[in-house]
Amino acid sequence: MIKTHGLTKRYGRTLAVDGVDLDVRPGDRYGFLGPNGSGKTTMVRMLLGLVYATSGEIEVLGEPVPRRVHRVLPRIGALVEGPAAYPHLSGRRNLKLLDAAGPGGPRRTRKSRVEDALAAVGLSGVDSRPVRAYSLGMRQRLGLASALLRKPELLILDEPTNGLDPRGIHEIRDLLIQLNEAGTTVFLSSHLLAEVEQLCTRVGVVDKGKLVLQDELTAVRTPTGRVLVDSPDPAAAVALLDGRLEHRDGSRLVVRHDDPAALNAQLVGGGVRVAGITEQRRTLEEVVLEVTTSSADRIDGASRPGAAP
């Protein structure tokens, strides 16, 4: 769906994107991660032909970009750097104008396409108020609706849940999973690691313009060598664990062990009831912190000449 080779972008002396080989496959829910200033948004804009690469190659939906971007844009839904809209018009009017501006489909079905898109993002009951009166969350939902108008094969989204409350984030996550299961590939740039961990099947991590990690999420989140146990008999479990206990919080135990099934058999065989048992894995946050450096927007006081220690 998306392939890049040696993709590089310079702004004067600043190397924003440094030789990135991106691989987004059909059916992926791909999370694109990295600190602020790592080149994520520049990458997204190059994929859509909004910014030209300094060097390297881009292929989206089998077509070279930007040379043939006109062939692929009608098949893509995109939300980049916040939703764009005419602030004096209503959300419905904005979507109708957007649909009319491209090959969205017959005019006679435009109203139904707009209503379907609004319903998908939770705005079916929106009134005729102008977009300038919308909350940030409503604007973000409208931007997502615009990305869904043409039933895209590929969704390219830059921080799609920005401004949404926890329930709104949950709703958009469910929507993206449903769209993906129906055949839409999702490419999602975000800094919300917990959200990406729940939504995405593959991840790519950039740091200072370089792609430092790209793999299946399950492969990235490797086992820690510990097992999480929930037992109604925590004291009996501790006595049986022979020094392997690392932490206890009421009935929940963290145990040094690399085989949950064997540990479960040991506990049950010793007469200990087990309500739940699972292998502990590294969090996505731990992985990203390991492969990236500090954010580009951080300015330490010690780096300034004459700064106080």
Results as ranks from 00 to 15, higher is better:
L211I: 14
A85I: 04
R93K: 15
T283G: 15
V24F: 02
A119I: 08
L192T: 00
A275M: 05
D297T: 11
M46D: 07
P232D: 07
V238K: 05
G6S: 10
R93V: 14
D207I: 03
R129Y: 08
V254F: 02
R67P: 00
G269I: 04
L73M: 09
L98S: 15
L284M: 07
L176R: 00
L47P: 02
E279Y: 01
T4S: 06
L240R: 08
G122E: 15
P83L: 07
V114S: 10
L95I: 13
G137W: 07
I299R: 06
P64C: 12
D207S: 13
V203R: 00
T161E: 09
G39F: 00
L217D: 14
N94E: 13
A296I: 04
D242F: 04
P83N: 14
L164H: 00
V220H: 03
S190M: 08
R167T: 08
A16Y: 02
V287Y: 01
T4P: 06
P305T: 14
R202I: 05
I2C: 09
A119H: 06
A239G: 14
R13W: 07
P305C: 13
Y11S: 08
L211H: 02
T41Q: 13
M138K: 09
R304Y: 14
S303I: 12
T201W: 03
A236Y: 01
T184D: 05
G105W: 12
P160D: 10
G77I: 06
P130Q: 15
R273K: 09
T41C: 12
L7C: 08
L73T: 02
E181W: 04
T185S: 05
R29V: 13
E171K: 03
S231Q: 03
E59Y: 05
T4Q: 09
R298Q: 10
A120E: 10
R129I: 09
R248N: 08
G12H: 05
G301A: 15
T293I: 08
D21P: 03
R167V: 12
T109M: 12
L217A: 08
N162Y: 10
S128E: 15
T8W: 03
A262T: 00
V291M: 09
G102M: 15
G137N: 09
L267D: 00
D28G: 10
T41N: 11
R304H: 14
A120C: 14
E197F: 07
V212G: 06
I58L: 08
R226V: 01
E57W: 01
H247G: 08
R298T: 13
K3F: 04
L253C: 14
S146P: 10
A236E: 12
R298H: 13
G105E: 15
P309G: 15
Q140N: 13
E195F: 10
Q280G: 01
L175W: 02
A145K: 15
L192G: 02
C200Q: 04
H191G: 07
R304A: 12
